[in-house]
Amino acid sequence: MRLGTIDRLYQSNDYAATLTALPTLLLDARVTAETASDADRPAAYALLARSRHLTGNLLIQLRAGDLAQIALTEALDAAHRAGDRVVGATVIQGMCWLLMRQGRLAEATELAISTADQIEPQFRRAAPAELSAWGWLLMGAAAAYARDNQPDTAAEVVDAAHAAAVRIGERRPESGHLMMVGGFDTHRVQMQRAENAAVADDPDRVLDLARLVPPGPTPVGSSWQRHRLDVAWAYAQQRRYPEATNTLVELREYAPAWLRQQRYARDIVQSITERRRRAMSAELADLASLVGCTT
């Protein structure tokens, strides 16, 4: 199975199929890289790096942090062997995501910003993939800054990422990269603004910003799904529990495997069950069971 096919499985939240397919891909990619001719070696190592990067992302979703660290470190080594700065930068973004999951916010921002500074593109001539890799790094930095109680810095970084997204929107992205690279656009920037508002405990702003985000899934499914959790959280904070529950039910129907792994979802469901005045509905009970919420 090709990397692009497995990437689509991952983006569609089919973690079981992704986990089943990855070992063969990783073995084939490693053998190909190690036996490639001089001319073919950069492309072969780039493929190996992207395969390991996808593995690392999956392991982060499954909360296997130690294994994800190994996969991402090996992905970065392969990217260096390939001499591919775009692939290397996207791997770094995965490392920043892992650092955030571990609560190491200062390290995440330092890694994201220092890498972004190293690869900062010239807007007039940069390829969409270069702008996208830079933008994703800024998104990671903004998320960490917001959680580290630096909202003004987070907003500045998001504004810079927005400029890259606008530039990408004026051009046709090249094919061949993981969907994550092609999934950076102005809508993704808007989701980040909403996420920062949720971190700042501002549900009104979350819902205002969410109105500018497409109602359906975007190319990077996990980003849109995470955004919908912010929307559910905002509804719950406003005590609009039916809307919050409906938003979560939509996510359960679309991405149950992903939702099951989200502590954020569990916290939202917990808040709804504790504050509700009516008897628990069957839908809410099903959600509580899925996310492991105590009632």
Rank of each mutant, 00 (worst) to 15 (best):
R41F: 01
A33C: 07
T115L: 01
V269L: 09
G216S: 06
A164P: 03
T5C: 01
R63Y: 08
L58M: 12
D148V: 03
R211L: 04
G182V: 01
H162C: 05
R171L: 15
R188D: 09
A200Y: 08
L58A: 04
I168E: 10
H80M: 04
G140M: 12
A194P: 13
N13Q: 13
A285L: 08
V158Q: 05
A163C: 09
Q69Y: 09
D208I: 02
V220S: 09
R171P: 00
D286Q: 14
A257L: 12
A194Q: 06
S175H: 09
G292F: 07
E274M: 10
R167L: 10
A17T: 08
T245E: 15
D40M: 09
M191H: 11
D201M: 03
L3A: 07
Q11A: 06
A279C: 03
T90E: 07
A194F: 04
I113Y: 01
V158D: 02
I272L: 08
G176P: 00
T295Y: 14
I92Y: 01
R50H: 03
G183E: 02
D84A: 05
T109G: 01
T90W: 00
W233T: 08
A232H: 09
T218Y: 00
D208F: 03
R275N: 11
R81K: 13
R101H: 13
H177R: 08
C293W: 05
